[in-house]
C-alpha cells in the first residue's frame, strides 16, 4: 500500500502512461527490442545520475560530471590511439582512476576550503573542458584511430543485451547496495538530512561529501570511456550540457535538492523517463526543440510535486492527528 502512494510508483505510472500514449500511435516503440535499445541509450544517463544522486543527497551538486566524462573519454581515446595494444581493461581502470581523481578534487575543495559546491564544480567544469582542449589541441580522435577492441566492448552482446546495458544494470545493483546497506550510504542521507545532527552523531560531514564527489567522478570516468568507445569519436564538446540532464533525472526521480531524501529506484526511473521522451519524440515526429520544453516541463512538475510532498510532511501539532497516525 505504501509503495502505491510513493513517488516512485507515481513516476512508474507516468512512464507506463507515456509508453501507452506512444504505443497508441506507434506500437513498434514498445516492442521488447526497441525498449532494450532505449534502455541502452539511457545507460550513460543512469550511470551519471546515480553518482549525482550521492552528491545531491549530501546537499551538494556536481556540475562537472559531463566535463569529467569528456576529459576522461578524450584521454582514453588518445591513449588508445597512441598505444593500440593496451588491453581494454587497463583503459577502463585508467578511466575509473582519472574520473575518481577529478571527483576527489571537487570533494577536497568542498571539504577543506568549504567553498559552495555549485561554485567549485562550475569552476572545475570549465577547467576540465579547458584541459581537453589543451591536450587534444582541439583535434578530434576519430573512429579509424581507435582499436577495434576499444570500440567493440560497449556494443558486444551478452545474453541479448549490449555490454553497456549490462554495465548500467550491474552498477545500479552495486550502487543500491552501497546506498542502502553500507554505513557510507547511510551517512549520505544523514549528512544531507541534518548536517548538525550528523556532526553530533560522530559523522564527518566534509569527508562524507568528499566520498560522494569521488563516487560521482568515478562513475563519470567510467561513462567517459563507454561514451567515446560507443560513438567512436572524441572531441572537446562531447556531452556538452549533459550535466543538466543528469541533475534533471535526479530531480524528476524525487531526489530532494535540499538533500537527504530520495531512492535509487527513483533516479533510475527519472533517467528512463527522460530517455523515453528523447527516443520517442523523433518517432512521433515532434521536433527536438519541443523535446527540451517537455523535459523542462517534467522537471518543474516533479519539483512542484516534491515540494508539495515535503510540505504535507510538516509537524503534527494536533494531538488527535498524532494519535491517528
Amino acid at each position: 500500500m505504501a509503495f502505491l502512494k510513493s513517488r516512485e510508483a507515481i513516476l512508474a505510472g507516468a512512464i507506463l502512461l507515456l509508453l501507452a500514449l506512444i504505443a497508441w500511435r506507434f506500437p513498434g516503440f514498445v516492442a521488447p527490442d526497441n525498449l532494450a535499445r532505449v534502455f541502452n541509450d539511457t545507460s550513460p544517463l543512469i550511470l551519471l545520475a546515480l553518482g549525482q544522486m550521492a552528491v545531491i543527497l549530501t546537499r551538494c551538486i556536481d556540475l562537472s560530471v559531463a566535463a569529467n566524462l569528456a576529459l576522461t573519454g578524450m584521454v582514453c581515446a588518445m591513449v588508445n590511439a597512441a598505444a593500440p595494444g593496451l588491453p581494454v581493461p587497463v583503459i577502463i581502470a585508467m578511466a575509473l582512476a582519472l574520473g575518481a581523481l577529478m571527483g576527489a578534487v571537487n570533494g577536497l575543495l568542498v571539504w577543506t576550503l568549504a567553498i559552495p559546491p555549485i561554485v567549485v564544480t562550475l569552476g572545475t567544469m570549465t577547467i576540465y573542458r579547458g584541459i581537453i582542449f589543451v591536450i587534444s589541441d582541439g583535434q578530434w580522435v576519430n573512429s579509424h584511430e581507435m582499436s577495434d577492441a576499444f570500440k567493440a566492448l560497449p556494443r558486444a552482446e551478452l545474453l541479448g543485451l549490449p555490454v553497456l546495458s549490462w554495465i548500467a544494470l550491474v552498477v545500479v545493483a552495486l550502487f543500491a547496495l552501497l546506498i542502502v546497506r553500507t554505513p557510507l550510504g547511510r551517512a549520505f542521507y544523514a549528512v544531507g538530512g541534518n548536517p548538525g545532527a550528523a556532526v553530533y552523531a560522530g559523522l564527518n560531514v566534509g569527508r562524507t561529501q568528499f566520498w560522494a564527489f569521488t563516487l560521482s567522478g568515478t562513475l563519470a570516468g567510467l561513462t567517459g570511456y563507454l561514451w567515446v568507445s560507443r560513438y567512436a569519436v572524441a572531441y572537446v564538446d562531447i556531452a556538452s550540457g549533459f550535466e543538466l540532464e543528469v541533475v534533471a533525472a535526479c530531480v524528476i526521480g524525487g531526489i530532494s535538492i535540499a538533500g537527504g531524501a530520495g531512492t535509487v529506484t527513483g533516479v533510475v526511473l527519472g533517467a528512463l523517463f527522460l530517455g523515453i521522451i528523447k527516443n520517442a519524440l523523433p518517432v512521433v515526429n515532434v521536433s527536438p526543440f519541443y523535446q527540451l520544453a517537455i523535459s523542462g516541463g517534467a522537471i518543474i512538475i516533479a519539483v512542484a510535486f516534491n515540494a508539495r510532498a515535503s510540505r504535507s510532511r510538516g509537524r503534527v501539532i494536533l494531538k488527535s492527528a498524532e494519535h491517528a497516525s
Partner: peptide, 22 residues
C-alpha cells in the same frame, strides 16, 4: 536543540537510533 542537532528528519526511527552505532 533537537531540531538542529538531534534527530534527522526524513530518516526512519531505526536509522536515527543506529546512526552513531553503524
Amino acid at each position: 536543540d533537537r531540531g538542529l542537532q538531534g534527530a534527522v528528519r526524513g530518516l526512519p526511527i531505526f536509522q536515527n537510533v543506529t546512526l552513531p552505532s553503524l
